[in-house]
């Protein structure tokens, strides 16, 4: 067990965990941030997607010891403006994307990161960027449409 100082969603947290603990479990078990989900544990499904330094990353295989001072953003902290839903979340609601909903926070995190680097992605770019996120219920068509809508409506 070692102590780590993590910056998550703009706040500092101290945790005392085994250094190999994946960030996913630090978030879920120790910081009570359960929005980031467990789907496979081998970096295949994307349900655990977070942002590290603003870049989308799967947290189920990222040991907490490797994070250092790099800021982590989870679904609980993804906003563009204080007090407002992120345009991606708004689009998700307007287009009624979710079925069971379990994969959606991971999808949203991947989508937010995509739009940061590619504010107007083509269909192909969306498919590429999002291919690491599985939706077992098959809402891909809606996810794509929601990303396109978020891209259009983004105030930036």
């Amino acid at each position: 067990m070692s102590k780590f100082n993590l910056k998550v969603n703009g706040k500092n947290h101290e945790v005392d965990v085994d250094p190999t603990t994946p960030v996913l479990w630090v978030l879920r078990d120790h910081l009570n941030l359960i929005g980031t989900k467990f789907g496979c544990g081998v970096g295949s499904c994307g349900a655990c997607t977070i942002h590290l330094n603003g870049r989308a990353l799967k947290s189920c295989q990222l040991p907490v010891a490797a994070v250092g001072t790099q800021p982590i953003t989870t679904i609980e902290g993804v906003v563009e403006e204080v007090g407002e839903m992120h345009p991606v979340q708004k689009a998700w609601l307007e287009l009624d994307v979710a079925q069971c909903g379990y994969c959606q926070t991971g999808q949203i995190m991947a989508a937010v990161a995509l739009l940061k680097t590619k504010p107007n992605p083509t269909e192909e770019e969306i498919e590429s960027a999002m291919s690491g996120n599985i939706c077992r219920c098959g809402t891909y068509v809606r996810i794509k449409a929601a990303i396109q809508q978020a891209a259009k409506s983004s105030t930036k």
Partner: peptide, 16 residues
């Protein structure tokens, strides 16, 4: 399959 850990420019995440 690879990008989410090794990153889109191949640089990975140091230490991880």
């Amino acid at each position: 399959y690879c990008m989410s850990c090794h990153m889109d420019n191949g640089t990975g995440v140091p230490g991880a």
